[in-house]
Design a protein around this nucleic acid. Structure first.
Length: 266
DNA sequence: ATGGTCGGGAACCGA
């Protein structure tokens, strides 16, 4: 089974590229972030023609995540109902989703969570506290799935090491690199999760749109796949599709994130 | 320290 995660920065704007990406790499399950689309706005025709269905989708006022799959789906759970939203009480918290996805061969399901970890904005912003609290709640919620094949995939908005930042000095007053955020990420690893892409696919996964950050390879590594033990042992390879981020390779504007692809043994 | 570029949705906010 081939799994991918990709912050697409608007599914509607990017749909042609998403479909081409699914075709190009023969993807079975795609976890997407920043869909920026309400349910009724999802561009489904081309996806359904390719055999994909939306396994899960959730949206709050400024974001949205989804899981697209062409393999059997089962027992889909959506949302994080115990999680309070940030700010407006009417805001729907739905930036973490879980879906149980059965493998095509039938040999046991894999749980895929499509995550958009809150950005944090600035270390002195209330949203930063919210980010840390959100991660703590996610870890607690996901811990019960450590004993089954589970992957927490998506945009973590954390650079776990200095090597994951093009210039850590530029981030001295910024989120993504603070000790508290790194400790929050490390807590997942200490708790039994394994990051399964780094060893196969080193390098950045995100480059800001401005100042030609991609062309100069001044990026961040913030998109990760954390697997439970029974998921991690099935991972055979992984790669970052840098071409998808390269403005010179494909038609139309790229997302600011590159997709990360993971292969699983049956 | 600021600004640079995107996307959404129609003025700025979020990243």
């Amino acid at each position: 089974m081939r799994l991918a995660t990709w912050n697409v920065n608007s599914l509607r704007t990017r749909i042609d590229r998403v479909e081409a990406f699914l075709d190009r790499h023969d993807i079975d399950v795609l976890a997407v972030q920043e869909t920026k689309a309400r349910e009724e706005q999802l561009p489904l025709m081309g996806l359904q023609a390719r055999g994909y269905e939306v396994a899960a989708h959730g949206l709050n006022q400024w974001n949205g995540v989804a899981i697209l799959s062409r393999v059997g789906l089962d027992d889909v759970t959506v949302g994080f109902p115990e999680q309070p939203g940030f700010g407006d009480a009417l805001e729907v918290e739905a930036r973490a989703l879980g879906a149980l996805v059965g493998t095509a061969g039938g040999g046991g399901g894999v749980r895929i969570w499509s995550l958009y970890v809150p950005n944090g904005r600035k270390p002195d912003d209330p949203h930063y506290v919210y980010k840390l609290d959100w991660l703590s709640r996610l870890r607690a919620a996901a811990s019960s799935w450590l004993d089954v094949p589970t992957a927490l995939v998506g945009d973590w908005n954390i650079c776990p090491t200095d090597d994951d930042v093009f210039d850590v000095a530029q981030f001295k007053n910024s989120t993504h690199v603070t000790p508290a955020e790194r400790a929050a990420f490390q807590a997942f690893l200490d708790g039994g999760w394994s990051e399964v892409t780094r060893s196969h696919a080193p390098g950045y996964t995100y480059w800001d749109y401005y100042r030609q950050r991609f062309e100069r390879d001044r990026g961040l590594k913030i998109d990760f796949v954390l697997g439970s033990a029974s998921f991690a042992e099935r991972v055979t390879s992984a790669f970052i599709d840098r071409e998808e981020r390269d403005p010179a390779v494909f038609a139309g504007a790229p997302s600011d994130h590159a997709p990360v692809v993971v292969d699983l043994a049956d």
